[in-house]
Design a protein around this nucleic acid. Structure first.
Length: 507
RNA sequence: GGCGACGUGGCCGAGCGGCUAGGCAGAGGUCUGCAAAACCUCGUACAGCAGUUCGAAUCUGCUCGUCGCCUCCA
């Protein structure tokens, strides 16, 4: 594909990407609720939309990327007077809700930095946008798609459905809702709600509720879905280009956003506002075939992944291994987690990273021995366009990585001292392209040098390698192997290559 | 019950009607004092059954199986 196409949840089709207002692109992604340790599942949308963000920028778009922090919390049970998650956790930990939100926000940001996820351009908090949320609710009421009940405000789904198409995003309809979820609606809720499908825009706060604000309807707190509509509208406009998030948010969260957007700011001439033009959803990560989630209690936190301290983990996995593991699969499919798969990803990443570093260490000069190899030359010359074609096909990073691996043997062959398969200019161009894809678009960073190697260590190692070289020249294998084994015990790996002896610290 | 996804070689995972995906693991070989790394070669898979087609892993139908959403979740 020579132009970017995106799988659009709204239309269920893969569509050509045409920004509403090129070269500007607005993108909003649902961020974390900051009340607990971020888990592996949280990393998937972050990395998925980091890839999208990076690629759009690579294509030259002026992207404004907004990813929110949900720090107001949602009720544990829809519609009843139960405690919200944040408040409950704060009480258990005996801290201010905001103190806890700040703690987990920082933790999340720190983990994202390790995963080399670029910071969004705006990272708004729900608590910081209460007036904007109230305004959205007021607009919806003004337009007649909401009603007040006992100090709470509910979205009038049946009314909305008369003029708009409720369920267009998730492929549901009101009848299905009643047939399925209706039975789960508690009687308590129905006291306030007119229809089981109605959802809260504003909720009255019981006295014991800590996080509450003044509103035209009394003291309360915003409903579950308004924050995203309010913040995306504020920073990206009534309709923007891309809204992203996990698949589990399609219903009810994103469906509600579509409703709110149309009801609050749509008019009779634009029933297709739908908040965003392209709705993108990453699939779930599974663990032994089951969805990994907080509520199922089978989640692994990102921190545990890095340290390896979890019963299911055979070893620690580095941030780049996690990132690479995710990019090796298309974001639209489930990704099953296992030690075996992660270990394979770790080795694969090392292979491509080694090649990356070798490539960057090469000095191409005119007049180097050259043996034209049409096949290898084609791999190098086509790399950029092949990678781009894969990426244009709904961000198929898995395919991009496959193309990288096809080029790795060529790089290694040159590094091994074989003749250049093509001319120096082609090699230069290829190197630039490979760097761009590895570093800028996939967002990978070589990790090996992360080991604490200071200049003194460098000098000592140079001396040791020199001594071993002497031993080898004297065919004193006993001594040279003793040195190598001794270093290996210190996690320093020695390799004798045609260019001399190399070493590196393993983690 | 409603809506939806998926089932690819030992494992992970691309594939969207014809042309080798790729990685990991495994086998053989080259190089090397040995090792490591690297390079070369090797598996011929598509849940099952019908059908459409000159031709299907790819389209259609059915069967079986797995999973997700319908309640906060990425």
């Amino acid at each position: 594909m020579d132009q970017l196409h995106i799988q659009n949840t709204l239309t269920k089709k893969k569509e050509l990407f045409v920004p509403l207002n090129a070269p500007f692109v607005g993108m909003y992604v649902c961020g974390p609720t900051v009340y607990s340790d971020p888990h592996l599942g949280n990393a998937r949308p972050a990395i998925t939309f980091d890839l999208v963000n990076r690629y759009l920028r690579h294509l030259g778009y002026k992207v404004r990327y907004v990813r929110n922090i949900t720090d107001v919390g949602h009720l544990e049970n829809d519609g009843d007077a139960g405690e919200d998650k944040l408040q409950k956790k704060a009480r258990v930990e005996q801290v201010e809700p905001m103190e806890m939100a700040h703690f987990y926000t920082s933790l999340y940001q720190d983990l994202m930095r390790k995963l080399n996820v670029r910071r969004p351009d705006i990272e708004p908090t729900a608590s910081g946008h209460i007036p904007e949320q109230i305004e959205i609710v007021e607009n919806i009421m003004k337009n007649g798609y909401a009603y007040e009940s006992n100090g709470s405000v509910y979205f009038d789904v049946p009314k909305y459905n008369q003029e708009f198409n409720y369920g267009k995003l998730s492929g549901r309809n009101l009848d299905d809702f009643i047939a399925g979820g209706g039975e789960r609606i508690s009687e308590e809720q129905l006291e306030e709600k007119r229809h089981p499908a109605d959802f809260a825009l504003w909720k009255n706060a019981p006295p014991e509720h800590i996080m509450k604000w003044h509103s035209p309807w009394g003291v309360g707190f915003p409903g579950w879905h308004v924050e995203c509509t309010a913040m995306s509208t504020k920073y990206l406009g009534k309709k923007y280009d891309i809204h992203g998030g996990g698949m589990d948010l399609v219903f009810p969260h994103h469906e509600a956003e579509v409703c709110q957007s149309n009801a609050a700011i749509g008019d009779s001439h634009s029933h297709d506002l739908d908040e965003a033009k392209y709705w993108m959803h990453n699939n779930m990560i599974t663990l032994n075939g089951k969805k990994m989630s907080k509520s199922l209690g089978n989640n692994i936190t990102i921190g545990e992944l890095f340290t390896g301290k979890h019963p299911l983990l055979a070893q620690p996995y580095s941030p780049m291994t996690i990132r690479f593991f995710m990019l090796q699969a298309h974001y639209g499919g489930t990704l099953d987690f296992s030690n075996e798969a992660l270990q394979a990803a770790e080795k694969a990443l090392k292979r491509v990273t080694d090649a990356f570093q070798r490539l960057n260490g090469m000095h191409f000069k005119a007049g180097m021995p050259m043996a034209h190899d049409p096949e290898k030359e084609a791999l190098l010359k086509n790399f950029e366009q092949d990678a781009r074609a894969a990426m244009n096909d709904d961000f198929n990073s898995a395919k991009v990585i496959a193309r990288m691996f096809e080029v790795v043997p060529v790089i290694n062959s040159i590094h091994a001292g074989n003749a250049l398969p093509t001319d120096v200019n082609t090699l230069h161009d290829f190197r630039v392209a490979f760097n761009t894809w590895y570093t800028d678009i996939l967002g990978l960073i070589p990790e090996e040098t992360a080991g604490n190697v200071d200049s003194k260590t460098e000098e000592l190692m140079a001396l040791i390698i020199e001594l071993r070289k002497t031993a080898r020249e004297e065919k004193n294998w006993g001594l040279s192997d003793k040195i190598r084994d001794g270093l290996a015990a210190l996690k320093i790996k020695v390799k004798d290559t045609p260019h001399g002896t190399e070493w590196n610290v393993e983690d």
